[in-house]
Design a protein around this nucleic acid. Structure first.
Lengths: 246, 246
DNA sequence: GCGATGACGTGACGGATTGTAACAGGCAGG
DNA sequence: CCTGCCTGTTACAATCCGTCACGTCATCGC
């Protein structure tokens, strides 16, 4: 609750909407933070070059051909500064991609200022490992049965070196499962993690997506070896993790 | 709904909202569980120190600077107690992080009590290798009579290298038995371990499942050599463990 | 030994769960 | 506006497995 006495945290806001910048500046300065607000990626770089920044609030969509995802990747390539992404309400895909690219959290617009404050404090407090494993430059690549699943490039390559083209939804599903081999995911959890919404009764969305995914990645979709069903529960990734880097 | 005879599972609830604690206590005690409910991380530690706990329901956000993620990490660093995290509806990030940090499952608030019960039983029954399996410790493979039972991949391979396709229920049954060669399991225990529920009178569920399993894994199902019956008691796994891979 | 009794094996049935083809709405790209 | 891809939905097929029914077998008292 109390401020760190020595110095206050420095927040960098990147958003092209002047009203939002103004609103965030006012609110967080009232809360005792130092705030710098800029409108685009170039100004962001300049700020990062000359001032110490503790956390970045980054709008996902920016004018001038740069978007938050690219900027996040850029920042992550050389720094661990916590990043909270501001996204549209329903950009579930972007959120997941954002996390994979190295953002620490996101907040959907429109947001309540109190919520932003809460998330910001959480991220600052949490900082350390958490997503840390994700933030490693290209370390987010999974190897199993000779296959390679590259989260950054969003591509899947077989043991024979052939790339398998997956749709966005298929890739997200596979990514969630492959990240936790041996873990049984319920359909609820899968729906939440891949779609950001809750499962309705008699909802076969997950099943259909799994079937389509199996048709692409399983040698014999009738006898899956990578993704197995667990009756009454959900699905589990049963690929055998290789020792990475071979 | 009779009590599990010997002992009941001990649930530790960690939530700062007294109403939620009260609600969970009442419901789970009615269901025959023992419940301890505390409000913060410190109380949680004290409880863990002095009592045996079977599963933890952990609120993600807690007062006093500690949150569920940190506590989960802390618990995981020294124990495998199953953890179910209680999260706000939209904290997708925290859920993902939660799973990565080692939680076994999560439930979004507000929740239905029946749902909590279902998840809890699932987790208790299927204590997941969670992150542990990622490290490549493939100790979760059993070898007997030249056969190989791979728990992570959920597959059974004969001495001739042929895979035998088992259903979810068959695999779970075989896994329980094969983990403890020579130990006689009563039907009650098998029902509990494979279905998470107690055996009703005149319930032939286990027998049927054993019969189906034998038909797939026994050379001569009439004269079983892997899974033998113990009249009046239950079943015992009599496969000869090989020295695992030399 | 012999029938009674109870335990176990197992085929069959059907409700529930899962697989999947087909369709259509939505959306991006032209 | 058209076109093609993606994906949620629907309907139906396949599978799983709890239950029932009946047959066999072990055990026991006589």
């Amino acid at each position: 609750m109390s401020e760190p006495p020595g110095r206050s945290e420095h927040i960098l806001v990147v958003d092209d909407d002047a009203r939002i910048r103004q609103m965030l500046i006012r609110y967080f300065e009232d809360e005792g933070y130092r705030v710098t607000a800029v409108a685009d990626g170039q100004a962001m770089r300049e700020c990062l070059d000359k001032a110490a920044v503790d956390i970045i609030l980054l709008d996902l969509v920016l004018p001038g051909g740069e978007d938050g995802l690219g900027l996040t990747r850029e920042i992550r390539s050389r720094s661990d500064i916590p990043i909270i992404m501001l996204t549209g309400r329903d950009d579930v895909v972007d959120r997941i991609v954002g996390l994979e690219v190295g953002a620490d959290d996101y907040i959907a617009k429109p947001f309540h200022l109190r919520e932003v404050l809460a998330r910001l404090r959480t991220v600052l407090r949490r900082r350390q490992p958490a997503i840390a494993s994700v933030s490693g430059a290209d370390s987010e690549t999974f190897h199993f049965d000779g296959w390679r699943l590259d989260l950054a490039r969003r591509q899947l390559v077989t043991a024979e070196g052939e790339e398998i083209i997956l749709t966005t939804g298929e890739f997200d599903m596979l990514a969630v499962l492959a990240k936790h081999p041996g873990r049984v995911f319920s359909r609820d959890v899968l729906m939440d993690l891949t779609h950001g919404r809750t499962l309705e009764a008699f909802d076969r969305t997950i099943d259909a997506q799994i079937a389509r995914l199996r048709k692409k990645v399983e040698r014999d979709p009738k006898r899956p070896s990578l993704i197995k069903s667990v009756r009454g529960i959900g699905y589990v990734f049963t690929g055998k993790p290789d020792s990475p880097r071979l």
